[in-house]
Amino acid sequence: MTAFTVAPSVRALIRKELREYRHHRMILMTATVLPIVFLLLPIANLALFDPERSIGGVNLAVGQAMFCFFLCPVIIPATMSAFAVIGERDQGTLEPLLTLPLSDSQFLAGKVLAIVGPTTAASFAIYLAYMSVVVAVAQEPVRSAALDWTWPFGFLLLAPVLALFSTLTGMAFSARARDIRVAEHLSGLVLLPAMLPVMLVVTRTIEPSVLSWGAFSAVVAALDFAIWRLALRAFDRERAISTA
């Protein structure tokens, strides 16, 4: 990707983005509270699991828990990426930012990586915490079902490409929308159908396996590539600074 030919300027943009996120209350809340919620919900779900009263059995309960983890790399980037361009425009920094020696691809890459990196790391971290809790306190049959290797395999494969998908979609809307909330809502509309394959797996409509996770990840990665190309083509500096 040409974005990395002048890596230092992209790295500079990433560092700036991360510094800004640390001082932006809404983003900070989104990036800290949501992962905690996405961690506590599955733990509560499994802790309260009652095999006698459960309709779908332990597999469905574990699937529901996993769904929360898959939501994490989708929802957090959607909020952050909506801010990426509109936020710059709202605080008046977009115009000087676009006078920096950053090509369109470097600009977008810096913005995208600043979201995908931390979000993926947070998603892996809460999943790791969940697995630790399961190992430490969960009883059979929950323990075996939750520790089934296909889940971490699928999560490891799919979480980064889902985060990228969510970020790119959010960025595309952010570059063209006038309001952060509009961008969030529009990207939400696109992201919900994208969660359908995950729904099919967590509900065991499709069995979690190397093949199913591999296929889904490949499809999402292909979509990511297509959206990246589209976003790059659609990114218009004049429009970005004039949409107000």
């Binding site: 230092p8 300027s9 500079a12 560092r15 700036k16 001082h23 920096l100």
Partner: peptide, 17 residues
């Protein structure tokens, strides 16, 4: 970038160049 310090603003610009 009003949330950042004067130095951080300049660091970004200098790094980007």
């Amino acid at each position: 970038y009003e949330r950042l310090t004067v130095r951080d603003n300049l660091v970004f610009w200098a790094d980007a160049h």
